[in-house]
Simulated scan of single mutants.
Amino acid sequence: MLRISKGSTSSIRLLSQSTRSSFQNKRSILSKYEKKPELDLSPNKLASESHIPFVKQNLYKKEPRQPQAKAPFLSEQEDNYTGISGWREKLGQFVVSTFGIDMDKSRSGPVAGGKYFGECKKQALFYPDEPLSDSARFYYETLKLPQSFSQQVQIMILHYWILSVRMRALPYKYGKEYQQKLVDRIFSDMELRMSTELKIKSGRTIENYMKDYHTQLLGCVLSYDEGLMTDDITLASALWRNVFNGNENVDLRHVEALLMYVRSQLYVLNKMTDRAFGFGYFSFVPADQIVKLISKEEEEMIKEATKKEFAGMTLPSQQSVLSMDE
């Protein structure tokens, strides 16, 4: 593990096909984060230190629709995909071995469409009669973003993009599968939540929302990619336009804190091997924690520990061609 210390629609086509920049050599893309000056502040602490008066942004002609119910967080199948036992497990292992199933491709469903989807969704999730999670408090209380479904979507898109950067560094045929499973699951979940939680009865209205969110996602991916491959000013500008809704009265310390949060996630992802990431070992670092830079020696120790762990995974369903060195 990296050293982390506690501080105060239907089917959507693969998005990265329209932004075919080469992310496969991830170290050249993310090398700018290798020597960032280390701050002894978490993103949450950095944002909280600002004392600039808050000016509420008027985004809506009327108050946004709030959830009236609660849809399942994950499907029953994805919650329990690791819980198969007995003869079913033996049969499954036999099928995988006999037919030579590509497990890295098959694994993209439960990992990207299950584990990583859950990571994206829970960050800004809220319900009116429930206390906010720690991650949701960072967005709605610390950064003072409005509590709405559309705001949740923007934050979920940001986390999708962060993961997609790492997915595009996987071998292409696997990276596109992981991206597709994740984005399909995000949009199918949004469609479900609009009907069950927001109680939108019109299928046409939901379809129009889905098209609008898809357009937003495409624009966000392009603007965040530009920021990734240029400089922090460009990336901060993209965060301001999308997550902060282009608020002219935004506290720039809040934008800086979110930029630091994004940098931290990219740094951690850059230190993970393809194998560890492909098996779903990544979780977003909470905003109240500090990511410490690690040395080359520590990085090699992490890789050796990962190799030792995977050496004990000998079942056919645990087979993988993903690298344990990069």
Results as ranks from 00 to 15, higher is better:
Y178I: 04
Y174C: 04
L182S: 05
R107S: 10
P146G: 05
S164H: 10
A124V: 06
E119G: 05
K176D: 11
P128D: 05
A169V: 04
Q151G: 03
L145H: 05
K105E: 14
G114L: 01
Q93R: 13
A169Q: 10
K181W: 07
Y172C: 05
K181F: 11
D184A: 08
Y139L: 05
S148M: 01
C120N: 14
I162W: 06
L125V: 02
L132F: 11
V183C: 10
I162A: 13
R137C: 14
K173T: 08
Q151Y: 01
G109I: 10
Y172V: 12
F149Q: 00
R107D: 02
Y116N: 04
L132M: 11
G114K: 01
S97A: 15
V96Y: 11
L158R: 10
S188M: 12
G175F: 04
L143N: 06
D134H: 09
G109Q: 12
R166N: 07
G175V: 06
V111P: 02
L163W: 07
C120G: 05
V153S: 04
F149C: 00
Y140K: 04
Y172P: 01
P110D: 04
E119C: 09
A112H: 04
R137H: 07
L182C: 05
A136L: 08
Q93M: 12
S148H: 02
M167A: 10
Y140C: 02
L143I: 11
F117H: 12
F149L: 00
F117D: 02
Y160K: 11
Q180W: 09
I157Y: 06
S97P: 02
F117L: 14
G100R: 11
K144I: 04
R137Y: 03
G114E: 02
Q151A: 00
Y172R: 13
Y140E: 03
F187W: 08
V153M: 13
E119M: 09
I155R: 03
D184L: 04
D189S: 15
Q147T: 10
Y139W: 15
Y140N: 00
F187E: 06
F138A: 07
D134I: 10
L132E: 06
E177H: 12
F149W: 05
I162P: 09
S188Y: 11
L170H: 09
P131I: 01
D189H: 11
S133W: 07
I155A: 03
M167H: 10
L170F: 14
I101E: 06
F126K: 03
Y172L: 13
I155Y: 01
K176C: 12
P131K: 01
R168G: 13
I162C: 11
Y160P: 08
E119W: 01
Q180T: 09
E130R: 14
T98C: 07
D129E: 14
K181Y: 10
K173N: 14
V96S: 08
D129A: 12
A124Y: 00
Q147W: 02
Y160I: 12
E119P: 01
L125T: 09
V111S: 02
R166M: 14
S133T: 15
T98Q: 14
K176N: 06
F126E: 02
K122I: 15
E130V: 13
L143W: 07
I186A: 09
A169C: 11
M167N: 13
L145F: 07
